[in-house]
Design a binder for these strands. Structure first.
Length: 412
DNA sequence: TGTCCACTGGAAGGGAGGGCTT
DNA sequence: AAGCCCTCCCTTCCAGTGGACA
């Protein structure tokens, strides 16, 4: 058999110095045996959920805190602990503990939440077709068919409520009154502190019987977290002095985000491994910071549907041909409509384009600010938030947008 | 000070595509 | 097969608005 080019690649990678011991422990999704600087939160959550061990229903609770402050990790940590404990005493207790953890970024409609819960209790339902009420009552009756205590965790619950309202949440907070054998405990997790304002007061009072606020990590705390993970994930003495401090400092600039600091450390390690370096250096961390940023943007651009891509490309063309002058919604819509006719598709309405402009703003790809031009109306001032080169490189790769490359809109 | 522009953004609803029940 | 119900994506309608201008 002839030698494949990949054989050589793998051989040289194997021969290179080993950087990682256990790479996955450096992912933020990995739950270590200890969570440094979250002892207090673990203890509080443990205290609140402790009644499950004696078969009582704990209070519903709400966890608040910014991204990367350990809400999800602490919750999973405590739930895992409880599940282990329950296993130990299972012969002594006459009920089962079930948990369902869902991220409302994915499970973001009322129907999907209930369907997900059905799945968790072993009730198979189609992803569409049934009335939500029907799916909900199937969930209830399956859950109630045996003695069970179910802890339902709704991570990023604010997304669900903003998108689909709080009807499901309302039903779930009242479900215990309809159950004879089983009980449900709800845990809501949110990084939007203003989220409470959207909630019906009845849901709010029932859901936040207990609340835990997760403060951001300080740079010093991040260093401890990174040291712990580095010990698990990297070969000994592979990190140059200062690497961990730099990762912590960069992440601390953004509200003490442990997730980000771990990503930085892991990607820095991957870069060092690729370069076959003897150790991971501060330079690798800096490259990692740029590469993470670039990859996030490239990924966002690549996965955009066609119409938002065209809108973004219109903003790009406006900036390219009219210099740094800011565009307004009307300009963008005109160029967008023209591009649609060039590639022979029907343009969407200006109303819909307005929504897409807001979405692109939220993704951080453009900056759209409401302004008033006096008697010339109220509109949005729109600027690109990322370099033009990045738009060009990533969008013109799309065959349909590529056809527009070099096109100068007639409106100029 | 009132007018008026060019929108914004909420609300309601249409319809396509999918699937269930009877 | 008919009648429902779901989500998703979109349109239509329209009241509301900030501030330059007459």
């Amino acid at each position: 058999m002839t030698k494949q080019p990949l054989d050589g690649l793998f051989e040289s990678l194997m021969a290179a110095p080993q950087i990682f011991k256990e790479r996955d422990t450096l992912r933020h999704t990995y739950i270590p045996d200890e969570l440094p600087h979250r002892e207090e939160e673990i203890e509080r959550l443990g205290n609140i959920l402790f009644p499950v061990l004696s078969g009582s229903t704990p209070s519903n609770l709400f966890l608040y805190g910014k991204t990367g402050t350990g809400k999800t990790a602490v919750t999973k940590y405590v739930l895992n602990f409880l599940l282990d404990k329950i296993k130990e005493i299972s012969n002594k207790s006459d009920y089962a503990l079930a948990t369902s953890f869902m991220n409302c970024q994915m499970v973001n409609t009322n129907y999907r939440v209930v369907a997900y819960l059905c799945d968790a209790v072993g009730e198979k339902v189609p992803f569409t077709g049934l009335p939500t009420d029907e799916v909900y009552s199937r969930f209830k009756s399956t859950l109630d068919s045996e003695k069970k205590l179910m802890i339902i965790v709704l991570d990023e619950v604010d997304i669900l409520v903003k998108k689909s309202g709080d009807e499901t949440l309302y039903n779930l907070t009242r479900i215990n009154t309809d159950l004879d054998n089983s009980k449900v405990c709800l845990i809501g997790i949110s990084n939007d502190l203003k989220f409470k304002e959207y909630l019906d007061p009845r849901v709010l009072s029932s859901l936040s019987e207990e609340e835990i606020v997760f403060p951001p990590y300080t740079a010093i705390e991040l260093i401890d977290i990174l040291k712990q993970r580095a010990e698990l994930g990297f070969q000994p003495n592979i990190l140059e002095e200062g690497v961990i401090n730099l990762c912590a400092a960069l992440a601390a600039q953004e509200h003490g985000d442990a997730r980000k600091s771990l990503d930085l450390l892991r990607v820095a390690g991957e870069i060092a491994a690729r370069k076959k370096a003897e150790e991971v250096t501060e330079e690798h961390v800096r490259i990692a910071a740029i590469s993470i940023e670039r990859d996030t943007v490239a990924e966002a651009l690549r996965t955009l549907p066609l119409h938002p891509k065209l809108i973004l490309y219109s903003v790009y063309l406006l900036e390219k041909h009219r210099g740094s002058e800011n565009s307004i919604t009307g300009d963008v819509f005109n160029v967008y409509s023209e591009l649609c006719s060039v590639i022979n598709i029907d343009p969407l309405t200006q109303r819909r384009i307005g929504d897409f402009i807001n979405e692109l703003d939220m993704l951080g790809l453009i900056n759209a600010k409401n302004i008033s031009l006096g008697r010339y109306g109220r509109t949005k001032r729109i600027k690109l938030s990322i370099p033009k080169k990045q738009i060009q490189d990533n969008l013109e790769g799309d065959e349909r947008i590529g056809r527009l490359s070099g096109h100068v809109p007639e409106s100029f």
